[in-house]
Amino acid sequence: MKAVVYVLLVAQVGFFMIGLFTQTGVVSETADMVIDNRTHIELRSNPYPLVVGSSQLFFTVLDANGHPLDAASLDVKIATSQGSSLPLQSSVIQTATGQFSVPVQWSTGGALTISANAVLTDGSVLDDSFAVYMYTATETAPPLPTQFRSARQNGALVTDPQHELAIIIPQGTLAMIQSGVIENAFPDEIRLSVSGLNTLIIRNNDIVNHEVGPFSIRAGETIRQKFTIPNFFQGSCTVTGTSLVSIIVEE
């Protein structure tokens, strides 16, 4: 129910960047392990993060063991946050087994979605997408993250939707707040309950560190907190318009 509420909220205010991700099926490992054990597409770029001008995207199709997987082709699409497609000026080139690259020329900054669709040699199809931010000036990225996280990776954060609430801080959040593109990239108030939605997961996909109440979350980090008793936390927040966030844990 809360998942639906958040999705509606996201749709209403147009913050496609606030992600609340759920995935059916219970697994025993954490999200990162699940990703490691699945066939998936990895995206890196040069430069990282992306900056207006010329850059190169590198895609790798990986098998369950993290080894490049032979793929017959890879299709790439890029869209703005409003959904408009951006034309690719070059074709995707296969550079090695399971590895593809495409040069791109960016003229404006902002949030983008890069979608990749790989056709494997056995005919099966693997697709994924990446929420990325195009910076207007070169940014010094911290050691983490070194690559973009995909929608599948973010979606795998939640393995038990009845009890887990995941909130993603997308790449470019600070830049968008500073430039006035968005006011709020995070709910001011998070309500949980010991007997229901009792686990808060916050993933920082931005390239800067963020404060969310009692949590200081480095770029690329994910924190996972299970609450076992009612509690109330209020503190400063770098991703809300009010610069404050409340975490309310009820019975």
Binding site: D32, I223, K226
Partner: peptide, 15 residues
Amino acid sequence: FESSDLRGAVINPPR
């Protein structure tokens, strides 16, 4: 640290 049963806030990857 990948146990979902831990009651503190787990930081991933380790800092």
